[in-house]
């Protein structure tokens, strides 16, 4: 006898198999969409953030950071043979006259950054600077903050403020 057509059981099994896989894919696509549109942190600025941190940290090491001065929204880094300024605006950072605007929606820089100078044993010091990135004026996570650090040997020419308190 020729077998013609398809039984309902076969149709049901086929549909259920494909449905399971489509549901898995839907879950993945929804996760991808959530990641792509994640505005809980400055996700669209990760590359620029990495570039700025690398630029400044490489300058610390290559040009030999020797001191810094802090004004309201500006840090002037004094290197052995040069000076470079980091200026913080709500929507961008300017370092060495190059601008790095924020792309992420609702993200702004907080010009009220933190700065710490810490003595490490007798001969070394550690500088840490953290410039927060706010989402809707709230610092939701430190992952997107501009965090800089520098550990070096002290010398007689070093000139760093011992502390800094934001006046806002």
């Amino acid at each position: 006898m020729n077998k013609k057509g398809i039984t309902i059981i076969e149709v049901l099994v086929s549909i259920s198999l494909v449905s399971i896989i489509v549901l898995l894919l839907l879950n993945v696509i929804l996760s991808l969409n959530k990641i792509n549109n994640d505005d809980s942190y400055a996700s669209q600025d990760e590359i620029d953030r990495s570039e700025i941190i690398k630029l400044i940290e490489d300058d610390f090491l290559a040009l030999k950071l020797n001191g810094l001065t802090i004004e309201e929204n500006k840090i002037t880094f004094n290197y052995l043979d040069s000076t470079k300024k980091l200026i913080i605006f709500k929507d961008k950072i300017v370092y060495d006259n190059k601008e790095y605007p924020l792309e992420s929606p609702k993200a702004t820089y907080d010009s009220c950054f933190s700065y710490h100078y810490t003595q490490i044993d007798d001969n070394y010091y550690l500088i840490t600077i953290d410039i927060p990135v706010l989402i809707d004026n709230v610092n939701t996570t430190k992952i997107d903050d501009l965090s800089l650090s520098y550990l070096a040997l002290k010398n007689e020419f070093n000139n760093y403020p011992s502390n800094y308190t934001c006046s806002k």
Binding site: L17, V18, I21, V22, L24, L25, V28, I29, S31, L32
Partner: peptide, 17 residues
């Protein structure tokens, strides 16, 4: 054939996540 294709797509996207 359809299942294998969809599973391959799934494994690619899971890697991206």
């Amino acid at each position: 054939f359809i299942s294998v294709s969809l599973l391959l797509l799934y494994s690619t996207f899971i890697g991206m996540i």
